[in-house]
Design a protein around this nucleic acid. Structure first.
Lengths: 183, 183, 183, 183
DNA sequence: GATGAATGAGACTTCATTCAT
DNA sequence: TATGAATGAAGTCTCATTCAT
């Protein structure tokens, strides 16, 4: 209704990502959104509600087109994921969800539902299709493959160095080809 | 020096893991360690210093023995990692480091140095040895392989479901064997 | 004029009685009356004005008929008083008037004028008539008698126990008969 | 322990009496007691606790000596009661207890226990003794007599006029002698 | 070295009141 | 007339930090 909603949620999300839950003060949100604190409380009754709403407000961009080329499609998803994480400062958001898991499990649950699950489903669908086309080895462990694809970004970020050139393709190759000699 | 140091750091780490940085109040640390707040300040001048010291105080357990069997050795490391994460509530600690990265980058830096880097080095050494023994495909991308191995736990945890039986072995297989048919 | 007036005043009085002056928020009044806050402000410019108006709006019920039987007539008034107090949660209203006496003396003044004074006058008229009929002792202190009759309810309420069976009659007897032996 | 306790409770009680529960802000209490707000919270965890403690801290003065002269002894108690009420601004306190009865019944309960009950017991003991000495009419209703004695002050205060000269004695006479002619 | 007591700054939240529609 | 939206001021409470003993 009022146009302030979006500004408030954006500000909240930004603060959540950069300053954590503790750093997301209502004062700061209100100031950044250009409204008074009471205006924030008019919409969300508590700080926790605001945080949850901000998380639910995340809109990820860049749906990828499926081409049927497994390597290319998987890499496209990884690329979109990486860009979204950077754009939204999502490492901070993820950290906040994990850090608050004990105190506010709904944050992590929401993040799972909104961000993790859809991406996993996308990856899984690509792999299923490839298997149906006979492109994958018999008995390939697709569940684990999704874990490997999804975890690679976190591992790289946690390692601390830069993402190498062609990171997406290298991850996809790692998962598709494996380390062992063929035959 | 005094015997209180350990109790304080333990308490701080426990709170860091379960309540996040914001939830680790000096009051709570002092109470859990059985000392007065002033005693805490006698040792660490600020809350941030205490948090950093607590993180530096982490001692991971369960060094694994190297057998020369690559599958087994990699799985052993993953298993130790998983047990340590659970024992220390490390997902909360990792989340805290990520959430505070902007405000306190030294936390993530310390975590990288103390926890991430050694584990990556261990994995990398195993892979290097295997390559030297000729067990790996020519041109195998070991950097990426380490990312895949390190990220799998996070991806599984973020997915929300349980860890499957034989999780370590499945991850190792995924990384070694790949998804493609062996020509 | 508008039909909302009554609803607002009723809601205000109810809240005044049950939640005190502090608990009578304009938000609550408006919600309970089914109007918006601004509608309330359209009629009464401040919260204090609304409270005063609500108090002035009280209508006590159950005028008693005078029979000429002093005992019965006094008891009837006490009974009506007791029922009104219960119906209107008047102990809360009285408390509020006393609690706010320093801050808003007009509340207590209004309560005196609207509720206390008429009741005292009724009692006094009955006693005067009885005296004129020669039913009372010469030199009987009717001022004090009215105080005793009026105060009995408060004393019983403050004592905390239940009102005994036949309370009205017992109070009247106490005031008429006294404690000393006759003759 | 710390000498501030008394100052804080005194300030709280003063504000409770003059400004009501809502007007007793922690800010005001702290300022009047000459300490910081946090110091208040160090002792009483919530405002309600402070209010209760302040009420429990009331010390009434002027125990009366029993002479065996019923009229004089009753009047002495009424006089002490009246002086205490004035000294402590107790009408405000009573009002606050009544106004908050729904929200905080413990306040009224405490007031009953500390102030009402002892006074009633004193009066009752005097009356019982007089009865045992044969000074009272057979079957005199002493419960009701205590109500009359206790309520007289409230009734007079609520009436709004001044307390007449010899008020105590007039009340006692009213209760002892009654209004009816001595046959 | 240890502590109990104290506090300033700042957090979340409420509420009386105003105003454009 | 009626209202939804907005807000400044104020209130309760927390916490990192200091200091006298």
């Amino acid at each position: 209704m009022a146009a302030h909603d979006g500004a408030i949620l954006d500000a909240a999300l930004r603060l959540l990502a950069t300053a954590g839950y503790g750093g997301m003060t209502i004062d700061a949100v209100a100031a950044e959104a250009g409204v008074s604190k009471a205006t924030v409380y008019l919409r969300w009754p508590t700080k926790a509600d605001l945080a949850t709403a901000a998380l639910a407000h995340v809109r990820e961009t860049g749906g990828t087109r499926v081409t049927g080329d497994l390597r290319r499609d998987l890499a496209a998803i990884l690329g979109a994921m990486r860009r979204n994480i950077r754009r939204l400062s999502a490492t901070g958001i993820i950290g906040m969800c994990l850090a608050e898991e004990r105190a506010a499990p709904e944050l992590l649950a929401l993040f799972r539902e909104r961000s993790i699950a859809p991406r996993r489903a996308e990856l899984r669908a690509l792999l299923d299709a490839a298997r149906d086309r006979g492109e994958l080895r018999d008995g390939a462990d697709l569940d684990t493959a999704v874990d490997l694809l999804m975890g690679a970004h976190h591992a790289r970020y946690m390692a601390g160095g830069p993402f190498p050139r062609g990171w997406e393709e290298r991850v996809v190759s790692g998962v598709l080809d494996g380390l062992l000699p063929t035959a």
